[in-house]
């Protein structure tokens, strides 16, 4: 399987402070890849620079073999990468339908087919399509944020902590959706602090610590790795299993 995204020696800095200190990873087409790590590990910065919201200091980002260097976000979105930003960030005073249409802002073709597809995935949103997005519950807003991103008809969807601030049962629902859209052929790059859930959903995982990738492997392997267990899954739990 070919890699849809290849990141090489990526460095991102904010005013001299390096947030990402030269990382490399690949996202194979049709897979779920996850970046896990604590706050400040540089996960969000990585995603933001892939979609062009941040200018990397050095390194290359290849999307389907094409260098994204110097491209603006609007071009990158048109090429087929979309970001579900951290903290949902739905347009609170716009209706659910308007939010979905905003996701497809860069598209010129007919939206009907994708609108139906998204409403099939999230029947709840169909019921609420005339409601302002701000009146939805946290879980529904996260669903809307994902649906909005899907409306741009991406080849690669990147999600920044989709489980943030959600109840466990809702988190379960979010991950069910991630598996479902992956099953339908979508490539997903997932950034998470909820390492347990993320690694179980992912084919490949990378562990980031203070701007560097310290570990990588299949999701399954990482989930069983002692140091990952110790760092992200809770020590007590790791001891019980060993």
């Amino acid at each position: 399987m070919s890699n849809i995204l290849e990141v090489k020696d990526l460095k991102v800095a904010y005013g001299g402070i390096e947030a990402v200190k030269g990382i490399s990873f690949e996202v194979p087409e049709g897979e779920v890849v996850t970046l896990i790590g604590a706050n400040g590990a540089g996960k969000s910065s990585t995603l933001r620079s892939i979609v062009g919201l941040e200018k990397p200091v050095s390194g290359s980002i290849l999307f389907q073999g094409m260098d994204l260097k110097g491209m603006g976000t609007e071009t990158i979105v048109t090429k087929g990468i979309t970001l579900v930003p951290e903290g949902r960030r739905v347009f609170a005073n716009l209706t659910v339908l308007e939010n979905l249409r905003m996701g497809a802002y860069m598209r010129k073709d007919s939206l009907e087919e994708d609108m139906n597809w998204v409403y099939d995935l999230f029947p709840r949103l169909k019921e609420r399509s005339w409601q302002p997005a701000g009146t939805l519950s946290g879980g529904e807003q996260q669903m809307l944020a994902i649906a909005r991103a899907l409306m741009s008809k991406p080849k690669l969807i990147m999600m920044d902590e989709p489980s943030l601030g959600l109840a466990p049962i809702i988190v379960q629902g979010v991950f069910d959706i991630i598996r479902e859209i992956n099953k339908q052929g979508m490539t997903i790059l997932l950034v998470e602090q909820n390492a347990n859930m993320a690694l179980r959903a992912a084919n490949t995982g990378y562990v980031m610590e203070t701007g560097r990738i310290t570990l990588n492997g299949t999701g399954k392997k990482l989930a069983e790795d002692e140091s990952v267990k110790a760092a992200y899954l809770g020590k007590a739990r790791a001891k019980k299993k060993s």
């Binding site: 979609v51 919201l53 603006g72 976000t73 609007e74 990158i76 979105v77 048109t78 979309t82 970001l83 930003p85 960030r89 739905v90 347009f91 609170a92 005073n93 716009l94 905003m102 996701g103 802002y105 860069m106 909005r148 741009s152």
Partner: peptide, 12 residues
Amino acid sequence: EDDVAAEAMGIN
């Protein structure tokens, strides 16, 4: 509503 999200949608 949210300029960060708007930018991520590809709005210049």
